[in-house]
Amino acid sequence: MSNSINNIHGDKVRDFTLSVLTEDRAGLLNQITIIFTRRKINIDSLNVSTTEVPGVSRFTIVIQSVSKDQVEKVVKQIRKLVDVLGAFVYEDDDVYYQEIALYKVPTDVFLNGNKIETLVRNSGARILVIEKDHIIIEKTGHKSDTHDLYDKLMPHGLLEFVRSGRIAVSKSKRKTEAFIQQLEEAKSNRLSIKDF
């Protein structure tokens, strides 16, 4: 679960974050995921969202347990999809990224002293909702952070836990809009591979 985990071969698992810009079109999710399925690569997390450019969607896909070489091949096949505008691979150092987690705990655990309250405060989480029978705690961070809080809440009776896919922005100065414009202005239907 954390970034320092080892795979079955004992190698340190690296996360690769794929950022895929696409036209906003039905069926694309399927087209993209079958490229991973064909190679039996498990998707660790996936998030689809709009971007600052109207009509352009961004898929943020995290995969583990693959070599850099394999990731490159997959990304090239994603780029080949007709409705894909661009696809980029990042390692953790190349991006700012976050995930959000929600934890549902019984309200009564808060009534037994301030242990949980301290835990929430110290872990930088916040209380989202208080209901009569349960409380929803929200935490944003890297997977290891949200997992840490999960471990701590578990003994107190965690009713439900959910974590979002990773979202990431690259550290590069490139603007999505400029990239799309470059594609539109590309001489007729030609493009140099260096542009990716």
């Binding site: 007709v82 894909v84 594609l183 539109e184 239907n189 493009l191 140099s192 591979i193």
Partner: peptide, 14 residues
Amino acid sequence: CEKIRSYHPYPILD
């Protein structure tokens, strides 16, 4: 159809 912004079938020769 002569152009699709997300599809560039002819690479520019380097």
